Simulated scan of single mutants.
Amino acid sequence: MMRSRRQLLAAAMTAAVATCALMLGTANAADRVAVFESANAARIAASQQGKPFVLVVWSLDCVYCKRNFDAIGKLRARHPDLRVVTLATDSADASPQVQKMLERVRLTRNAWVFGHEPQERLRYAVDPDWMGEMPRTYFYRADGQRQGVSGVISEGDWARHLRWAGIAG
């Protein structure tokens, strides 16, 4: 009987350690930058499960993109439930630098970086009307409708677009 208790305890401990490792692995995977291929465009919207969100398209060498990140940081302080997905137009080879930048601005969840398909194809998958100007921000409503905005967004425009999307009142 004593031996079976030890075996049971050992099995329980092993299961607990495995569960913790799995949970940590899942959390880390969620914070890793995923590679965006054109087939992923619909997956991004679907990943938000019908809830309004903001898609921020940016690049490491875009000075103006950093201003949008500053604004998003302030918005998230006021609206902690603000759902943000980021898409870096840099190549997948730049993933480590993209990850570092996203860690600095605290946007590591739901992060993507352009994959190996031609840039034009990837941009077209995001939005056929988008010519590549940045920053580019999309405001998605729960019903899937979206508005795209190019350039740095003023504080008043952020509020207006978030209201349109049903994100903030």
Score class of each variant (00 low, 15 high):
residue 96 P to S: 08
residue 143 D to R: 03
residue 105 V to G: 06
residue 137 T to N: 03
residue 135 P to D: 09
residue 116 H to Y: 09
residue 139 F to G: 00
residue 145 Q to A: 13
residue 116 H to F: 06
residue 125 A to W: 01
residue 143 D to K: 04
residue 129 D to R: 10
residue 120 E to N: 02
residue 144 G to V: 12
residue 93 D to L: 03
residue 109 R to H: 11
residue 113 V to W: 07
residue 110 N to V: 02
residue 119 Q to C: 06
residue 125 A to N: 02
residue 126 V to R: 00
residue 137 T to Q: 02
residue 96 P to C: 09
residue 136 R to K: 14
residue 139 F to W: 01
residue 117 E to N: 00
residue 115 G to N: 08
residue 111 A to R: 07
residue 96 P to V: 08
residue 113 V to N: 05
residue 102 L to P: 12
residue 102 L to G: 12
residue 133 E to G: 15
residue 123 R to A: 07
residue 130 W to M: 01
residue 143 D to Y: 01
residue 98 V to F: 08
residue 128 P to V: 07
residue 100 K to F: 04
residue 104 R to A: 10
residue 109 R to P: 08
residue 126 V to S: 02
residue 125 A to E: 00
residue 133 E to K: 14
residue 144 G to Y: 09
residue 129 D to E: 11
residue 95 S to Q: 15
residue 136 R to D: 05
residue 133 E to H: 15
residue 103 E to W: 06
residue 103 E to D: 13
residue 142 A to L: 03
residue 114 F to I: 05
residue 132 G to Q: 09
residue 140 Y to D: 08
residue 128 P to K: 07
residue 97 Q to P: 04
residue 115 G to D: 07
residue 144 G to F: 10
residue 139 F to A: 00
residue 123 R to L: 12
residue 120 E to D: 02
residue 116 H to P: 02
residue 137 T to F: 01
residue 120 E to A: 06
residue 126 V to A: 02
residue 110 N to C: 02
residue 132 G to T: 12
residue 98 V to L: 12
residue 116 H to G: 05
residue 111 A to M: 09
residue 133 E to M: 11
residue 94 A to S: 14
residue 145 Q to F: 03
residue 119 Q to V: 15
residue 123 R to Q: 05
residue 98 V to H: 09
residue 140 Y to G: 07
residue 91 S to V: 11
residue 123 R to M: 12
residue 108 T to H: 10
residue 116 H to M: 04
residue 129 D to P: 05
residue 134 M to I: 06
residue 119 Q to W: 10
residue 139 F to R: 03
residue 120 E to Y: 00
residue 110 N to H: 12
residue 132 G to V: 13
residue 93 D to W: 02
residue 90 D to C: 03
residue 111 A to F: 05
residue 117 E to L: 01
residue 143 D to Q: 04
residue 131 M to K: 15
residue 100 K to R: 15
residue 95 S to V: 15
residue 95 S to I: 15
residue 99 Q to Y: 06
residue 90 D to W: 01
residue 137 T to V: 07
residue 130 W to F: 03
residue 130 W to Q: 01
residue 135 P to K: 06
residue 105 V to K: 09
residue 142 A to F: 01
residue 138 Y to H: 09
residue 125 A to F: 00
residue 98 V to D: 13
residue 129 D to H: 13
residue 92 A to G: 13
residue 120 E to H: 02
residue 125 A to R: 01
residue 127 D to I: 01
residue 135 P to I: 04
residue 127 D to E: 01
residue 116 H to Q: 10
residue 127 D to V: 02
residue 145 Q to P: 08
residue 139 F to C: 00
residue 95 S to T: 15
residue 134 M to C: 04
residue 100 K to A: 14
residue 110 N to R: 08
residue 92 A to V: 15
residue 133 E to F: 14
residue 108 T to E: 10
residue 140 Y to P: 12
residue 111 A to N: 10
residue 109 R to L: 06
residue 123 R to V: 14
residue 128 P to T: 04
residue 120 E to L: 00
residue 102 L to N: 11
residue 129 D to K: 11
residue 93 D to G: 07
residue 144 G to S: 14
residue 114 F to W: 04
residue 115 G to C: 08
residue 99 Q to L: 09
residue 144 G to H: 10
residue 114 F to M: 06
residue 106 R to A: 13
residue 131 M to Y: 15
